[in-house]
Amino acid sequence: MNEDRLDIKTPEYVSIQFQLAGLGSRAAAFIIDQLLLTVVNILTIVVLFFVMDGISSVQFLPDSFIPIAITIIILFIVNWGYFFAFEFFLGGRTIGKKLIGIRVIQENGHSITLLSSFIRNLIRIIDSLPTAYFLGIIMIFFHPKHKRLGDLVAGTIVIHERKVKQKKKLTPIEKEIETRGLTKYDIFIDEWTLKSLGMKEWKLISTYASRYPQVPMEERNQLTRQIAEILLPKIGLEVEGKRETDLENTLLVLYLILKDEWEFEL
């Protein structure tokens, strides 16, 4: 199944291998998404029915077309915006993709960007032609990287999620992060800043995280401030005036964010 795998070399000459999502898994995810959208569409139309029923008893008949026009606009925004919003804000995953275990990423291995998500889903209109997503199905089936037209234009690919092996015990740093109640969502880093952090920054923060539980307190405080002075300005955060505990929390959250980007395990 080598044809279903894609090797990507990062600027740091690190080779990352992805398993491409084929027609079957993509179709399954799409069906789940469409079922969810169908429920939303039906509920919207039911609401329209009751609104129209109320308007029909009013003498101003011309205004009765306004709810229909509004509903058509809402249905278009929901059906198109669902894929665009979920793929961008949930890291390339719609609800269907998340359940099936696939996601959309950039062809260079990075997370999908706002522009790519917009273009990819705008072209979805063409991929659905002439009916029942026929053009998209044909493209995915015959393209060597299982791309539809939207993927070609946006420079994206759809891959299977990388499954992290279950560990019986948490590592010391994972226990520390869990004890502090930290998550990768505690800091917002925009996509451009995130892409400026490469393998060098990942190695630095991962080394810090691995050494953190073993280093004596005095040496740990010194190490924390040194690493913070290197990394935090790169994400727009100041170091001056902050306590060591705050710097530690920020660095550990940054570790979680970069781990999601750089630590791959099939």
Rank of each mutant, 00 (worst) to 15 (best):
V164C: 05
G181E: 05
V158G: 05
P172S: 03
I157W: 01
H160N: 11
I177W: 04
L170G: 00
L170Y: 08
I157T: 02
T179I: 09
E176Q: 10
K184H: 10
E174K: 00
D186E: 10
L182S: 07
I159D: 08
I157N: 06
V158A: 09
R162L: 13
R162I: 14
T156F: 04
H160W: 12
D186C: 00
T183V: 02
I157S: 06
D186G: 11
P172K: 00
K168D: 14
Q166P: 10
Y185T: 11
L170V: 00
K169R: 07
P172W: 03
L182D: 07
G181D: 00
L170S: 09
L170E: 03
E178G: 01
T179H: 13
K169L: 10
K165V: 15
D186M: 07
V164D: 12
T171Q: 13
I177N: 01
K169S: 11
Q166A: 11
K175V: 09
T171G: 06
L182A: 01
T171L: 14
K168T: 12
L170I: 00
I177G: 05
V158P: 08
I177P: 10
T179F: 12
K184I: 12
I159H: 08
T183D: 04
L182E: 04
L182K: 03
I173Q: 09
E178R: 10
I187S: 02
H160P: 04
Y185H: 13
L182W: 08
E178S: 12
K163R: 12
K167S: 14
T179N: 15
I157E: 03
G181P: 07
T156Y: 03
R162S: 14
E174F: 04
E174D: 10
T171W: 11
T183S: 12
K175T: 09
E161V: 09
H160D: 08
P172L: 00
D186S: 08
G181F: 04
R162T: 12
E176L: 14
I159V: 15
E178L: 09
R162K: 14
L182V: 05
